[in-house]
Design a protein around this nucleic acid. Structure first.
Length: 260
DNA sequence: ATGACTGGCCCTGCCAGA
């Protein structure tokens, strides 16, 4: 089965691109981030007409995540545990039943954290700690788990075209990268890196200064697999063609194929 | 060297993104 993640930067602006992606490669599950709308404004009818069940955790104006699935969705839980004061819609988890089993999927929109030295960066690191604690608990279930989303983390130098340019950015801070490694060290696999160790595999290109044309990208959209999911990993794809469309998202979809 | 897009909202400059 094909499980994808995509930060669409407004589902309203990107609906045609999204429907095109649902038609081809026709993923079984899609985790969306930055839908930038409330639940009621999500284009549910259009997505359902394409053959998908929908779970949404939206927010007015910013953030917002969703999970689309060709298979039934159960046990839907919005919000990352650990901070009742956190009202930002950045996490949605659900269980997707597949023929002969199930896979637990989370759609994650990890805080950007810029500028560093502010409460925004503190919030990012705290959010990463909460994610790590929750991810630790999920491992105990011994299920196939896919934690998919826009992590806003550049894991290492291979994942950025111009490291010096990002040296003072929240996405590439040593503390940010260490928190990401701590998450992996629990026992999760960065699906892309399990399949391909080359540099220059990017998932985001800024709108500004011709970043796409110059291939000045970064890899910040990741799918993390529990051991039970990693055992069934077949391959990973970065769907770069969507970045060349008219009025694209600045992120492209990334997908894993699992033998499930 | 510098600046540079895009989307949403309080409808119009401003915040947020990365």
């Amino acid at each position: 089965m094909l499980i994808a993640t995509w930060n669409v930067n407004s589902v309203k602006q990107r609906l045609e691109h999204l429907l095109g992606f649902l038609a081809d490669p026709a993923p079984d599950v899609v985790c969306l981030q930055e839908i930038k709308c409330v639940d009621e404004a999500f284009p549910r009818l259009e997505v359902e007409a394409a053959g998908y069940n929908v779970a949404v955790h939206g927010q007015k104006g910013f953030n917002g995540v969703a999970i689309l699935s060709k298979f039934p969705i159960a046990d839907v839980s919005p919000r990352l545990p650990g901070d009742p004061e956190d009202v930002q819609s950045r996490y949605l988890e659900a269980v997707v039943s597949v023929p002969g089993g199930a896979v637990r999927v989370a759609s994650i929109y990890l805080p950007n954290g810029n500028p560093i030295g502010t409460e925004k960066f503190t919030y990012k690191l705290a959010w990463m700690e909460r994610l790590t604690e929750h991810a630790r608990g999920l491992l105990a279930l011994e299920e196939p788990v896919v934690l998919a989303g826009d992590y806003n983390v550049i894991p290492d130098g291979r994942d950025v075209s111009d490291p010096a340019l990002w040296a003072n950015d929240a996405l590439f801070q040593p503390a940010t990268r260490a928190a990401y490694r701590k998450l992996l060290a629990l026992g999760y696999t960065d699906a892309l890196r399990a399949c391909d160790d080359r540099a220059g595999l990017y998932t985001f290109w800024d709108y500004q200064a011709g970043a796409w044309q110059k291939n000045k990208g970064i890899r910040i959209d990741h799918l993390l697999l529990s051991p039970q999911a990693a055992d069934r990993l077949v391959g990973v794809d970065i769907h770069k063609r969507t970045r060349a469309l008219d009025k694209p998202s600045d992120h492209v979809p990334v997908s894993v194929t699992l033998d499930l």
